[in-house]
Amino acid sequence: MVELALVFVGGALGSSHCLGMCGPFALALGSGATTWTSNLRRQATYTLGRVFTYAFLGAAAGYGGARLTEQMPAVLNGAAVLAMLAGVFLIYQGLKSLGWLPFQSRPAQGFCLAAGAIAPLLRAGGGQSRRELTVLRDVFLAGLFTGLLPCGLVYAFLALAAGSQSVALGAATMTAFGLGTAPLMIATGCGGAVLRGAARQRVFQVAALCVVLTGFVTIGRGLGYFEIPGWRTAPGCPLCEQAEK
């Protein structure tokens, strides 16, 4: 699937953002590991936890999308509307990350209750006396909860998952995204800084552009759903063809 590949790339490039946000968590997990293999195990488990949550969210989004389409009045082409909404949202998130929007959304002022959930589990990686399996369990749970942290990139791809209108496809989309974030995150957790400062910002901008691109592709696909007489005389976009099959 072309789209899943694109999502994977989006995740891989987007993980320059993850490094900033979740990188410190990955480093914290590794602090208690004595050997690099045990650290690798922890990092992989942590990523697994994250990917699991993403997949769950993707499945839920896909299910939600399917139900939403079902509820829509017949005159509206549900699939098309959903795809276009998802596309617009992807473009919005991409532009926001690029800082190309003229306004700034003020991050919500709130008290972080999530801190109480994730912090102790992250700390679990620091203790050396504990059994490896216990540590891995906690690390997995830390990943599970980390996946729930609010993240514009995740939301963007969730919109895509909703557009898929299927539990399985939704989960697949988000799994591809999660796996895309894995390489950089695991490398960071194991070896420390892979990308620093300016380089990270540049890669992040490319990722944001990627998201914008995905948004346009999705909107194009949504437009393809409208069966307008004469529209298809020109050869259709390959992605749309793919999506319709």
Partner: peptide, 28 residues
């Protein structure tokens, strides 16, 4: 973003002790 706000709180939180680890593991 809100995510970074939460993440910063989580990293800060690691300094302090939380007694409810067992409950948290169950819950997780």
């Amino acid at each position: 973003c809100l995510g970074c706000r939460l993440a910063a709180a989580i990293v800060a939180e690691r300094q302090s002790e939380t007694p409810s680890h067992g409950v948290l593991t169950r819950l997780g």
